[in-house]
Simulated assay, not measured.
Amino acid sequence: MPDAAVRRVVLVAYDDAQILDIACPSGALDAANRFGADPPYGIGLATASGRGVLSSAGIGVGGGQRLADVPARPDTLMVVGGIGHERAAVDGELVRQVRRLATGARRVTAVCTGVFVLAAAGLVDQRRVTTHWRYGAELAARHPAVAVDPAPLYVRDGHVYTSAGVTSALDLTLALIEDDHGPALARDVARELVTYLHRPADQAQISMFLAAPPGGDRLVHDLLGHVSAHLADDLGPRALAARAGISTRHLTRLFARHLGTTPARAVRAARTEGAAHLVRSSRLTLAAIARRCGFGSAETLRQAFLEHYGATGDTIRRMPDMPRARPRADRQTPGA
């Protein structure tokens, strides 16, 4: 098939890449082709040496093309992530070729820690990007000209797209398919892959790490899932009851029975835990984190940290691990 008749997608990989960062985008694009993407995607793997790569799982991925031999002006350039990103970002030949291909690409993307390679190539200076929550602070420290936002699942800044860790590559790729071919095809691909269509870009990575309720009621599970994914929204008892189609009185009974707490306290705990994750994984100010997580002010968040963890935001940021919540009986209500 002539090159002009396909959207040429170049996946840039290296040893110790995360295999899902390769499989999620290529699998979704392949499914789009089978469902009639027009023009279809031409998917290729490229490496600095032209050889296949050994993923961090120890599984080899072959069929690589040497980056220097890849024709200029691909439709989409995608740099995958993985624990090998450290070596990839200081591989002069790989970085030079990524810079060359990015110059003529319609769009430039990175999955997870692949953004470190884009940053090394100078391709994301003054741009807003995201990455795996664990590496946000490191990326910001190494590349102060890059606006790192570790909260969303993926970010678009002009023609540059970056995504969070691992499976968010699928969310990003579904978004690319929808941009190219519309929501109907993206929906078909999502159904084929038995996944959501697709999680919104601004859904917080941290929503996946917040504590799930112990056992019990499906409705409570669903509501807490909504809470953890929408920390900045109106999550008052009336709003939650309306979402569930029940009365606020019944909502309160369900939370008391299955969680041993009130809806308001459950929401406050989720917001506090989400804020603690952002404090540890980003360089955002306490005021910015407070806004992201539904607190009225930095001072309100500070009080929540003291109540929930017995520690300030600065202390939490310096801790080697996430703090544990204090037992409820030991928590002091602010001002008490």
Rank of each mutant, 00 (worst) to 15 (best):
D222Q: 13
L251S: 02
V227H: 07
V146H: 07
D149R: 01
R187N: 07
L153T: 11
E178K: 06
S168Q: 11
P200F: 10
Q126A: 15
D179L: 03
A239M: 01
Y161N: 10
I177P: 00
L123W: 13
V166T: 03
F209T: 12
D171F: 08
S168A: 15
V155D: 11
V160P: 10
R249P: 01
L172A: 07
A164N: 08
L223T: 04
Q205K: 07
L170V: 04
A212Y: 14
A239R: 05
H198S: 14
F255W: 15
A140V: 07
H221A: 09
R128I: 11
T248L: 02
H198W: 10
D217E: 13
R257A: 09
T261D: 09
Y154H: 14
A145N: 13
A119Y: 10
T195H: 05
T262S: 08
V189R: 05
S168I: 08
L235G: 01
A137M: 11
L240I: 00
V148H: 05
G122T: 10
G215S: 14
A169F: 12
P183G: 10
A204Y: 05
H258R: 04
G136H: 01
L193C: 03
A119P: 01
L240V: 00
A175R: 04
A141H: 12
L123V: 08
V129T: 09
T195S: 05
V146A: 06
L210Y: 08
V166R: 00
T173I: 12
E192Y: 06
L170M: 04
Y154P: 06
H226A: 00
H258V: 04
E192C: 09
F209I: 12
R257C: 09
L259K: 07
P263M: 01
A212H: 14
R257F: 12
L174T: 03
L223F: 03
A121V: 06
L193G: 04
P213C: 02
Y135D: 12
R127Y: 09
R238L: 13
D149F: 01
I177A: 07
G122K: 06
L224I: 02
L223R: 02
Q126S: 14
